[in-house]
């Protein structure tokens, strides 16, 4: 990894992340968290900051297809990896069926957990197209929703799976 040292002796690192199919190269400090990189360097603010400790799942993104909490991943550690944020889920201006299903099943209230929920569901259905209710609940167990009680979220994911 290329290191750039400025006049004050501060080290920065040259990283290239593939985000939603686009390649972004930036020179950043090592303490830049992936969530900060996405929101402040790339202006992708769909990824939300919640607890910032890896408990709530609001900042969930997919790293090489797997859900991770971007608040406890260093951007330098994501160098060379493929990141999918909520902005990358809709294709050609068409919402993903999971997003459609969340709307149709009233699985959204305040919406703060929704990006993370959709990405956890996306990763699940990619790997396991026809999950059981228990598998859906396990997949979103790291995404806390304080509004809905989860019932409609689980339903939305199951309906999206049925439509496949």
């Amino acid at each position: 990894m290329q290191v750039v040292v400025d006049n004050n002796g501060i080290k920065r690192y040259l990283v290239t992340l593939n985000i939603n199919g686009d390649s972004y190269t930036r020179v950043i400090k090592a303490n830049t968290l992936l969530v900060k990189f996405l929101r402040e360097e790339i202006d992708l603010t769909g990824t939300k900051k919640g607890c910032e400790l890896g408990d709530c799942g609001s900042c969930t993104v997919l790293m090489d297809g797997k859900p991770v909490n971007s608040c406890i991943v260093l951007a330098v550690e994501a160098d060379g990896h493929e990141i999918t944020t909520i902005e990358g889920v809709a294709q050609n201006n068409k919402l993903d069926r999971i997003q459609e299903s969340f709307i149709e099943n009233a699985a959204i209230q305040c919406g703060y957990c929704t990006p993370g929920m959709v990405l956890s569901a996306k990763a699940l259905l990619t790997q396991n197209p026809h999950p059981t209710e228990q598998e859906v609940r396990t997949a979103i167990a790291g995404n806390l929703c304080r509004c809905t009680g989860y019932v409609n979220i689980v339903k939305a994911v199951l309906v999206a799976a049925d439509e496949q």
Partner: peptide, 9 residues
């Protein structure tokens, strides 16, 4: 252990 996101990392 923990949750899926943490188990992935």
């Amino acid at each position: 252990m923990a949750n899926n996101q943490v188990r992935n990392v």
